[in-house]
Design a protein around this nucleic acid. Structure first.
Lengths: 186, 186
DNA sequence: GATTTCCTTTGACATAGGTCAAATAGTGTT
DNA sequence: AACACTATTTGACCTATGTCAAAGGAAATC
Protein backbone atom coordinates (compact mmCIF):
# COMPACT_ATOMS: atom_id res chain seq x y z
CA UNK A 1 0.00 0.00 0.00
CA UNK A 2 1.38 3.28 -1.25
CA UNK A 3 1.26 6.24 1.15
CA UNK A 4 -0.35 8.56 -1.34
CA UNK A 5 -3.16 6.08 -2.03
CA UNK A 6 -3.55 5.58 1.67
CA UNK A 7 -3.94 9.29 2.43
CA UNK A 8 -6.39 9.72 -0.44
CA UNK A 9 -8.45 6.81 0.81
CA UNK A 10 -9.05 8.58 4.12
CA UNK A 11 -9.59 12.17 3.03
CA UNK A 12 -9.94 13.50 -0.54
CA UNK A 13 -6.78 15.54 -0.95
CA UNK A 14 -6.18 17.36 -4.23
CA UNK A 15 -3.16 16.39 -6.29
CA UNK A 16 -1.40 19.60 -5.33
CA UNK A 17 -2.04 19.08 -1.63
CA UNK A 18 -0.82 15.51 -1.83
CA UNK A 19 2.34 16.58 -3.54
CA UNK A 20 3.03 19.21 -0.90
CA UNK A 21 2.33 16.74 1.87
CA UNK A 22 4.45 13.94 0.47
CA UNK A 23 7.50 16.19 0.29
CA UNK A 24 7.71 15.89 4.06
CA UNK A 25 7.85 12.11 4.08
CA UNK A 26 11.24 10.46 3.64
CA UNK A 27 11.40 7.03 2.09
CA UNK A 28 13.61 4.58 4.01
CA UNK A 29 14.60 0.98 3.61
CA UNK A 30 15.11 -0.76 6.91
CA UNK A 31 16.51 -4.27 7.41
CA UNK A 32 14.87 -7.06 9.38
CA UNK A 33 15.15 -6.74 13.15
CA UNK A 34 16.19 -3.10 13.02
CA UNK A 35 15.16 -1.15 16.12
CA UNK A 36 13.55 2.19 15.35
CA UNK A 37 12.98 3.41 18.90
CA UNK A 38 14.16 2.23 22.30
CA UNK A 39 12.27 2.25 25.57
CA UNK A 40 13.00 5.58 27.27
CA UNK A 41 13.84 7.46 24.08
CA UNK A 42 11.55 10.08 22.65
CA UNK A 43 9.96 8.85 19.46
CA UNK A 44 10.79 11.60 16.99
CA UNK A 45 9.35 10.00 13.90
CA UNK A 46 6.09 8.64 12.63
CA UNK A 47 6.41 5.85 10.08
CA UNK A 48 4.11 4.66 7.39
CA UNK A 49 4.67 1.06 6.34
CA UNK A 50 4.68 0.57 2.62
CA UNK A 51 6.20 -2.89 2.83
CA UNK A 52 7.06 -5.16 5.74
CA UNK A 53 5.79 -5.21 9.28
CA UNK A 54 6.77 -4.14 12.76
CA UNK A 55 5.90 -4.43 16.38
CA UNK A 56 6.13 -2.47 19.59
CA UNK A 57 7.17 -4.25 22.76
CA UNK A 58 8.54 -3.61 26.20
CA UNK A 59 10.62 -5.46 28.73
CA UNK A 60 8.76 -6.57 31.82
CA UNK A 61 10.22 -6.91 35.34
CA UNK A 62 11.84 -10.20 34.38
CA UNK A 63 13.38 -8.73 31.27
CA UNK A 64 11.00 -10.63 29.02
CA UNK A 65 9.83 -8.98 25.80
CA UNK A 66 6.12 -8.30 25.78
CA UNK A 67 4.66 -7.44 22.39
CA UNK A 68 2.30 -4.52 22.67
CA UNK A 69 1.15 -4.13 19.08
CA UNK A 70 1.74 -5.29 15.55
CA UNK A 71 1.88 -2.92 12.59
CA UNK A 72 1.16 -4.22 9.12
CA UNK A 73 1.34 -2.91 5.58
CA UNK A 74 -0.51 0.34 4.99
CA UNK A 75 -0.54 1.42 8.65
CA UNK A 76 1.19 4.12 10.58
CA UNK A 77 3.69 2.85 13.11
CA UNK A 78 5.07 4.71 16.09
CA UNK A 79 5.11 4.82 19.82
CA UNK A 80 1.95 6.94 19.60
CA UNK A 81 2.07 8.43 23.04
CA UNK A 82 5.75 9.24 22.89
CA UNK A 83 5.48 10.76 19.44
CA UNK A 84 2.54 13.03 20.10
CA UNK A 85 3.46 14.04 23.63
CA UNK A 86 7.20 13.98 22.92
CA UNK A 87 7.61 12.01 26.12
CA UNK A 88 9.87 9.00 26.75
CA UNK A 89 8.61 5.94 24.96
CA UNK A 90 7.34 3.06 27.05
CA UNK A 91 8.06 0.74 24.15
CA UNK A 92 10.65 -0.46 21.75
CA UNK A 93 9.68 -0.25 18.11
CA UNK A 94 11.21 -2.72 15.71
CA UNK A 95 10.84 -3.94 12.19
CA UNK A 96 10.16 -7.67 11.87
CA UNK A 97 11.27 -8.10 8.28
CA UNK A 98 12.97 -6.02 5.61
CA UNK A 99 10.73 -3.00 5.21
CA UNK A 100 10.06 0.12 3.22
CA UNK A 101 8.91 3.01 5.37
CA UNK A 102 7.95 6.63 4.90
CA UNK A 103 8.96 8.73 7.86
CA UNK A 104 7.94 12.18 9.02
CA UNK A 105 9.05 14.24 12.02
CA UNK A 106 6.81 15.66 14.71
CA UNK A 107 7.54 19.23 13.59
CA UNK A 108 6.70 18.46 10.00
CA UNK A 109 3.45 16.73 10.74
CA UNK A 110 2.41 19.48 13.12
CA UNK A 111 3.11 21.93 10.33
CA UNK A 112 0.91 19.87 8.02
CA UNK A 113 -1.82 19.68 10.64
CA UNK A 114 -1.69 23.47 10.91
CA UNK A 115 -1.61 24.04 7.17
CA UNK A 116 -4.25 21.53 6.10
CA UNK A 117 -7.41 21.02 8.15
CA UNK A 118 -7.92 17.92 6.04
CA UNK A 119 -4.69 16.60 7.45
CA UNK A 120 -5.91 17.27 10.96
CA UNK A 121 -9.04 15.36 10.03
CA UNK A 122 -6.96 12.50 8.68
CA UNK A 123 -5.14 12.41 12.01
CA UNK A 124 -8.38 12.32 13.92
CA UNK A 125 -9.84 9.54 11.78
CA UNK A 126 -6.72 7.41 11.92
CA UNK A 127 -6.61 7.83 15.69
CA UNK A 128 -10.25 6.81 16.04
CA UNK A 129 -9.59 3.75 13.96
CA UNK A 130 -6.67 2.87 16.21
CA UNK A 131 -8.85 3.45 19.25
CA UNK A 132 -11.43 1.03 17.89
CA UNK A 133 -8.79 -1.60 17.31
CA UNK A 134 -7.38 -1.21 20.79
CA UNK A 135 -10.86 -1.51 22.27
CA UNK A 136 -11.35 -4.70 20.29
CA UNK A 137 -8.16 -6.12 21.64
CA UNK A 138 -9.14 -5.08 25.12
CA UNK A 139 -12.40 -6.98 24.82
CA UNK A 140 -10.59 -10.00 23.50
CA UNK A 141 -8.08 -9.98 26.33
CA UNK A 142 -10.62 -9.27 29.01
CA UNK A 143 -13.37 -11.67 28.14
CA UNK A 144 -12.14 -14.38 25.90
CA UNK A 145 -10.42 -17.66 26.49
CA UNK A 146 -6.93 -18.23 25.15
CA UNK A 147 -8.36 -20.05 22.13
CA UNK A 148 -10.77 -17.25 21.30
CA UNK A 149 -8.01 -14.69 21.61
CA UNK A 150 -5.95 -16.53 19.08
CA UNK A 151 -8.92 -16.55 16.72
CA UNK A 152 -9.23 -12.81 17.23
CA UNK A 153 -5.56 -12.48 16.30
CA UNK A 154 -6.14 -14.39 13.09
CA UNK A 155 -8.89 -12.02 11.99
CA UNK A 156 -7.18 -8.83 13.18
CA UNK A 157 -3.73 -9.62 11.79
CA UNK A 158 -4.19 -12.45 9.28
CA UNK A 159 -1.06 -11.53 7.37
CA UNK A 160 1.06 -11.33 10.50
CA UNK A 161 -0.10 -14.35 12.47
CA UNK A 162 1.92 -16.84 10.44
CA UNK A 163 5.02 -14.79 9.87
CA UNK A 164 6.35 -13.94 13.28
CA UNK A 165 7.82 -16.03 16.09
CA UNK A 166 5.26 -17.72 18.28
CA UNK A 167 6.54 -15.99 21.39
CA UNK A 168 5.80 -12.53 19.96
CA UNK A 169 2.20 -13.49 19.37
CA UNK A 170 1.80 -15.22 22.72
CA UNK A 171 2.95 -12.18 24.67
CA UNK A 172 0.77 -9.94 22.51
CA UNK A 173 -2.22 -12.11 23.38
CA UNK A 174 -1.33 -12.22 27.05
CA UNK A 175 -0.68 -15.92 27.28
CA UNK A 176 2.40 -18.12 27.60
CA UNK A 177 4.13 -19.45 24.57
CA UNK A 178 3.39 -22.98 25.73
CA UNK A 179 -0.33 -22.31 25.85
CA UNK A 180 -0.32 -20.82 22.37
CA UNK A 181 1.62 -23.78 21.06
CA UNK A 182 -0.97 -26.16 22.52
CA UNK A 183 -3.80 -24.10 21.04
CA UNK A 184 -2.30 -24.15 17.58
CA UNK A 185 -2.06 -27.90 17.79
CA UNK A 186 -5.64 -28.28 19.06
CA UNK B 1 -15.91 21.23 35.10
CA UNK B 2 -17.56 23.66 32.74
CA UNK B 3 -17.53 22.80 29.04
CA UNK B 4 -16.20 26.15 27.96
CA UNK B 5 -13.28 25.92 30.39
CA UNK B 6 -12.68 22.40 29.19
CA UNK B 7 -12.53 23.34 25.53
CA UNK B 8 -10.24 26.28 26.28
CA UNK B 9 -7.91 24.06 28.25
CA UNK B 10 -7.29 21.90 25.19
CA UNK B 11 -7.06 24.48 22.42
CA UNK B 12 -6.98 28.29 22.74
CA UNK B 13 -10.30 29.31 21.23
CA UNK B 14 -11.18 32.99 21.03
CA UNK B 15 -14.21 34.22 22.98
CA UNK B 16 -16.16 34.60 19.74
CA UNK B 17 -15.32 31.09 18.56
CA UNK B 18 -16.25 29.63 21.91
CA UNK B 19 -19.57 31.40 21.84
CA UNK B 20 -20.34 30.12 18.36
CA UNK B 21 -19.32 26.61 19.34
CA UNK B 22 -21.29 26.49 22.56
CA UNK B 23 -24.50 27.38 20.75
CA UNK B 24 -24.50 23.85 19.38
CA UNK B 25 -24.38 22.20 22.78
CA UNK B 26 -27.67 21.64 24.60
CA UNK B 27 -27.65 21.54 28.38
CA UNK B 28 -29.59 18.61 29.84
CA UNK B 29 -30.35 17.33 33.30
CA UNK B 30 -30.55 13.58 33.46
CA UNK B 31 -31.69 11.52 36.47
CA UNK B 32 -29.75 8.69 38.04
CA UNK B 33 -29.85 5.39 36.13
CA UNK B 34 -31.17 6.99 32.96
CA UNK B 35 -30.14 5.14 29.81
CA UNK B 36 -28.82 7.37 27.06
CA UNK B 37 -28.16 4.75 24.39
CA UNK B 38 -29.10 1.10 24.02
CA UNK B 39 -27.06 -1.70 22.50
CA UNK B 40 -27.94 -1.85 18.79
CA UNK B 41 -29.06 1.77 18.53
CA UNK B 42 -27.03 4.35 16.70
CA UNK B 43 -25.52 6.82 19.12
CA UNK B 44 -26.65 10.14 17.75
CA UNK B 45 -25.27 12.35 20.48
CA UNK B 46 -21.96 13.14 22.09
CA UNK B 47 -22.21 14.20 25.72
CA UNK B 48 -19.96 16.30 27.87
CA UNK B 49 -20.31 15.63 31.59
CA UNK B 50 -20.47 18.78 33.66
CA UNK B 51 -21.71 17.00 36.75
CA UNK B 52 -22.27 13.34 37.56
CA UNK B 53 -20.85 10.21 36.00
CA UNK B 54 -21.74 7.48 33.58
CA UNK B 55 -20.66 4.17 32.23
CA UNK B 56 -20.90 2.11 29.09
CA UNK B 57 -21.65 -1.58 29.36
CA UNK B 58 -22.90 -4.50 27.34
CA UNK B 59 -24.72 -7.72 28.00
CA UNK B 60 -22.64 -10.85 27.56
CA UNK B 61 -23.90 -14.26 26.41
CA UNK B 62 -25.33 -14.94 29.85
CA UNK B 63 -27.12 -11.61 29.95
CA UNK B 64 -24.71 -10.25 32.52
CA UNK B 65 -23.83 -6.55 32.39
CA UNK B 66 -20.17 -5.97 31.64
CA UNK B 67 -18.94 -2.45 32.28
CA UNK B 68 -16.79 -1.27 29.42
CA UNK B 69 -15.83 2.22 30.56
CA UNK B 70 -16.51 4.85 33.18
CA UNK B 71 -16.96 8.51 32.34
CA UNK B 72 -16.30 11.13 34.99
CA UNK B 73 -16.74 14.87 35.35
CA UNK B 74 -15.16 16.93 32.61
CA UNK B 75 -15.05 14.12 30.04
CA UNK B 76 -16.85 13.40 26.84
CA UNK B 77 -19.15 10.40 27.00
CA UNK B 78 -20.51 8.42 24.09
CA UNK B 79 -20.36 5.11 22.38
CA UNK B 80 -17.38 6.46 20.43
CA UNK B 81 -17.46 4.00 17.59
CA UNK B 82 -21.18 4.22 17.10
CA UNK B 83 -21.18 7.99 17.22
CA UNK B 84 -18.38 8.59 14.76
CA UNK B 85 -19.21 5.79 12.35
CA UNK B 86 -22.96 6.11 12.88
CA UNK B 87 -23.08 2.36 13.30
CA UNK B 88 -25.09 0.33 15.81
CA UNK B 89 -23.71 0.71 19.29
CA UNK B 90 -22.13 -2.32 20.92
CA UNK B 91 -22.82 -0.75 24.29
CA UNK B 92 -25.43 0.69 26.53
CA UNK B 93 -24.66 4.13 27.87
CA UNK B 94 -26.12 5.10 31.21
CA UNK B 95 -25.84 7.78 33.81
CA UNK B 96 -24.90 6.52 37.28
CA UNK B 97 -26.14 9.48 39.28
CA UNK B 98 -28.11 12.65 38.66
CA UNK B 99 -26.11 14.46 36.02
CA UNK B 100 -25.77 17.66 34.04
CA UNK B 101 -24.73 17.04 30.45
CA UNK B 102 -24.04 19.09 27.35
CA UNK B 103 -25.06 17.27 24.22
CA UNK B 104 -24.23 17.77 20.57
CA UNK B 105 -25.34 15.88 17.48
CA UNK B 106 -23.08 14.24 14.91
CA UNK B 107 -24.12 16.73 12.22
CA UNK B 108 -23.43 19.69 14.46
CA UNK B 109 -20.02 18.53 15.55
CA UNK B 110 -19.07 17.64 11.98
CA UNK B 111 -20.07 21.15 11.04
CA UNK B 112 -17.86 22.52 13.79
CA UNK B 113 -14.99 20.28 12.70
CA UNK B 114 -15.36 21.65 9.19
CA UNK B 115 -15.67 25.26 10.30
CA UNK B 116 -12.92 25.35 12.90
CA UNK B 117 -9.64 23.53 12.33
CA UNK B 118 -9.01 24.13 16.02
CA UNK B 119 -12.06 22.05 16.72
CA UNK B 120 -10.72 19.28 14.55
CA UNK B 121 -7.51 19.53 16.52
CA UNK B 122 -9.44 19.34 19.77
CA UNK B 123 -11.09 16.17 18.49
CA UNK B 124 -7.77 14.66 17.59
CA UNK B 125 -6.21 15.49 20.95
CA UNK B 126 -9.16 14.20 22.95
CA UNK B 127 -9.12 11.00 20.93
CA UNK B 128 -5.40 10.51 21.52
CA UNK B 129 -5.94 11.02 25.23
CA UNK B 130 -8.67 8.40 25.18
CA UNK B 131 -6.42 6.07 23.23
CA UNK B 132 -3.73 6.44 25.87
CA UNK B 133 -6.20 5.63 28.62
CA UNK B 134 -7.47 2.56 26.83
CA UNK B 135 -3.92 1.36 26.29
CA UNK B 136 -3.28 1.82 30.00
CA UNK B 137 -6.30 -0.24 30.86
CA UNK B 138 -5.26 -2.86 28.37
CA UNK B 139 -1.87 -3.16 30.06
CA UNK B 140 -3.53 -3.40 33.44
CA UNK B 141 -5.90 -6.12 32.30
CA UNK B 142 -3.31 -8.05 30.39
CA UNK B 143 -0.42 -8.11 32.81
CA UNK B 144 -1.55 -7.34 36.28
CA UNK B 145 -3.01 -9.42 39.05
CA UNK B 146 -6.53 -8.72 40.27
CA UNK B 147 -5.13 -6.71 43.17
CA UNK B 148 -2.95 -4.56 40.92
CA UNK B 149 -5.85 -3.93 38.58
CA UNK B 150 -7.90 -2.61 41.42
CA UNK B 151 -5.06 -0.28 42.36
CA UNK B 152 -4.96 0.90 38.76
CA UNK B 153 -8.68 1.62 39.01
CA UNK B 154 -8.15 3.72 42.11
CA UNK B 155 -5.62 5.94 40.35
CA UNK B 156 -7.48 6.12 37.03
CA UNK B 157 -10.94 6.78 38.49
CA UNK B 158 -10.40 7.86 42.11
CA UNK B 159 -13.67 9.73 42.23
CA UNK B 160 -15.64 6.85 40.78
CA UNK B 161 -14.17 3.86 42.60
CA UNK B 162 -16.08 4.48 45.79
CA UNK B 163 -19.37 5.63 44.36
CA UNK B 164 -20.58 2.85 42.16
CA UNK B 165 -21.75 -0.69 42.85
CA UNK B 166 -18.99 -3.22 43.31
CA UNK B 167 -20.28 -5.37 40.47
CA UNK B 168 -19.86 -2.53 37.94
CA UNK B 169 -16.22 -2.14 38.91
CA UNK B 170 -15.54 -5.87 39.00
CA UNK B 171 -16.81 -6.39 35.48
CA UNK B 172 -14.90 -3.33 34.30
CA UNK B 173 -11.73 -4.84 35.74
CA UNK B 174 -12.42 -8.24 34.28
CA UNK B 175 -12.81 -10.11 37.54
CA UNK B 176 -15.70 -11.56 39.49
CA UNK B 177 -17.49 -9.53 42.11
CA UNK B 178 -16.44 -12.05 44.72
CA UNK B 179 -12.78 -11.62 43.89
CA UNK B 180 -13.05 -7.84 44.08
CA UNK B 181 -14.83 -8.10 47.39
CA UNK B 182 -12.02 -10.25 48.77
CA UNK B 183 -9.41 -7.82 47.45
CA UNK B 184 -11.05 -4.85 49.08
CA UNK B 185 -11.01 -6.67 52.36
CA UNK B 186 -7.35 -7.70 52.09
C1' DG C 1 27.46 -30.17 6.23
C1' DA C 2 28.55 -29.47 11.07
C1' DT C 3 27.77 -26.56 14.79
C1' DT C 4 25.60 -23.26 17.38
C1' DT C 5 21.75 -20.79 18.45
C1' DC C 6 17.15 -19.96 18.45
C1' DC C 7 12.30 -21.50 18.25
C1' DT C 8 8.62 -24.81 19.29
C1' DT C 9 6.57 -28.65 21.46
C1' DT C 10 5.50 -31.71 25.25
C1' DG C 11 4.82 -33.31 30.08
C1' DA C 12 4.19 -32.72 35.08
C1' DC C 13 2.65 -29.91 38.42
C1' DA C 14 0.99 -25.42 40.81
C1' DT C 15 -2.19 -21.58 41.54
C1' DA C 16 -4.97 -17.34 40.79
C1' DG C 17 -9.14 -16.52 40.28
C1' DG C 18 -13.70 -18.45 38.62
C1' DT C 19 -18.39 -20.49 39.90
C1' DC C 20 -22.12 -21.73 42.86
C1' DA C 21 -24.69 -21.27 46.92
C1' DA C 22 -25.85 -19.33 51.13
C1' DA C 23 -25.53 -15.77 54.67
C1' DT C 24 -25.31 -10.99 55.83
C1' DA C 25 -25.66 -6.14 55.33
C1' DG C 26 -27.70 -1.87 53.13
C1' DT C 27 -31.22 0.98 51.07
C1' DG C 28 -35.41 2.67 49.82
C1' DT C 29 -40.59 2.40 50.27
C1' DT C 30 -45.02 1.98 52.30
C1' DA D 1 -40.61 -0.09 61.91
C1' DA D 2 -41.35 -3.71 58.78
C1' DC D 3 -40.86 -5.21 54.20
C1' DA D 4 -38.85 -5.95 49.86
C1' DC D 5 -35.17 -5.52 47.15
C1' DT D 6 -30.43 -4.99 46.01
C1' DA D 7 -25.57 -5.22 47.04
C1' DT D 8 -21.78 -7.43 49.48
C1' DT D 9 -19.36 -10.96 51.83
C1' DT D 10 -17.92 -15.63 52.86
C1' DG D 11 -16.94 -20.59 52.14
C1' DA D 12 -16.13 -24.77 49.34
C1' DC D 13 -14.68 -26.40 45.36
C1' DC D 14 -13.00 -26.35 40.32
C1' DT D 15 -10.52 -25.22 36.07
C1' DA D 16 -7.89 -22.68 32.68
C1' DT D 17 -3.69 -21.34 32.21
C1' DG D 18 0.86 -20.46 34.20
C1' DT D 19 5.65 -22.17 35.39
C1' DC D 20 9.53 -25.16 35.10
C1' DA D 21 12.25 -28.38 32.77
C1' DA D 22 13.61 -31.07 29.05
C1' DA D 23 13.49 -32.68 24.33
C1' DG D 24 12.92 -31.86 19.33
C1' DG D 25 13.20 -29.02 15.11
C1' DA D 26 14.71 -25.14 12.16
C1' DA D 27 17.65 -22.02 10.60
C1' DA D 28 21.63 -19.19 10.65
C1' DT D 29 26.79 -19.19 10.68
C1' DC D 30 31.16 -20.99 10.07
Amino acid sequence: MNISDFLSSIVPFTAAELKDILVHFKKESVPKNHTLVRQGEICKTLYFIEKGMGRSYYLNENGKEITQWFFGIGKFMSSVDSFFQQSPSLYYLEVLEDATLYSISKEDIDQLFAKYPKMEKMGRLVTIEMLTRVVNKLNAIQFQTAKERYDYMLTEFPDIAYHVPLGHIASYLGMSQETLSRIRKG
